[in-house]
């Protein structure tokens, strides 16, 4: 099963069995690559014994990234601790607050509540991927938020912005009710909901103008 264990093999090109095995867990210690970015010299070599078996390629913000991922590792953890993309926040880690919202193939989902291995071959967009990498130009949603002075503490902001991206892609002409509904998977404890809604409506407006 060595072949199947190396991710990158097409999911349909199985040999004996029609499934892909993430990795054989060999106990807590050896399977715990931890949430440190790779390369930290302080990690014992034993921690990475099975690392090669877990090396997968993720498409994040348009870039292919090779990363060592445990079978039970969530996308939010990979993004934050392996890829250094700390814009994706963990507010609850339980699919409740929305701070970890990312786009998977353009659809907003909770990064805390999917396994990284589940997004192999799919396109992941995080808050860091919204700016134009060459010009630094903000996305229309980000521009709208700048214009409307959105958010208070803004711990929720990356998640909300990702949901707004999904909203305007899906429904470029939302009513305030529709926008509120589309953003209802994100919590703002400052309860700055009205300003956030203004941002969303402005974002839709800007998107329509483009």
């Amino acid at each position: 099963m060595g072949q199947e264990e190396t991710v990158g093999v097409s999911e349909h090109s199985f040999t004996r069995r029609t499934f892909i095995k993430g990795v054989i867990a060999t106990g807590a210690t050896t399977s715990s690559a931890g949430y440190l970015f790779r390369g930290s010299s302080l990690l014992g070599a034993a921690t990475y014994q099975t690392a090669t078996e877990r090396l997968i390629t993720l498409t994040v913000n348009g870039q292919a990234r090779r990363v060592d991922v445990l079978p039970h590792e969530t996308l939010a953890m990979t993004l934050r601790y392996k890829l250094g993309l700390t814009g994706t926040k963990l507010g609850c880690d339980r699919a409740e607050c929305g701070a970890c919202t990312v786009l998977i193939d353009g659809v907003n989902q909770y990064g805390c509540s999917m396994l990284t291995h589940q997004v192999r071959g799919r396109s992941v967009t995080t808050i860091e991927g919204l700016e134009n990498p060459d010009t630094g130009e903000l996305s229309v949603v980000q521009k709208a938020v700048m214009e409307e002075g959105g958010f208070q503490c803004a711990f929720c902001a990356p998640g909300f912005i990702m949901s707004m991206e999904a909203l305007i892609a899906e429904n470029p002409n939302p009513t305030r009710e529709e926008a509120a509904h589309a953003l209802s998977g994100n919590l703002c404890r400052c309860a700055d909901y009205h300003k956030i809604l203004n941002c969303a409506m402005r974002a839709a407006e800007l998107a329509r103008a483009v």
Binding site: T86, I127, G149, F155, A157, P158
Partner: peptide, 16 residues
Amino acid sequence: IAPPDLHAKITGRAKF
């Protein structure tokens, strides 16, 4: 006036 840290907050650069 938008607060000066807003850009960091909405691009994921803000470090909590």
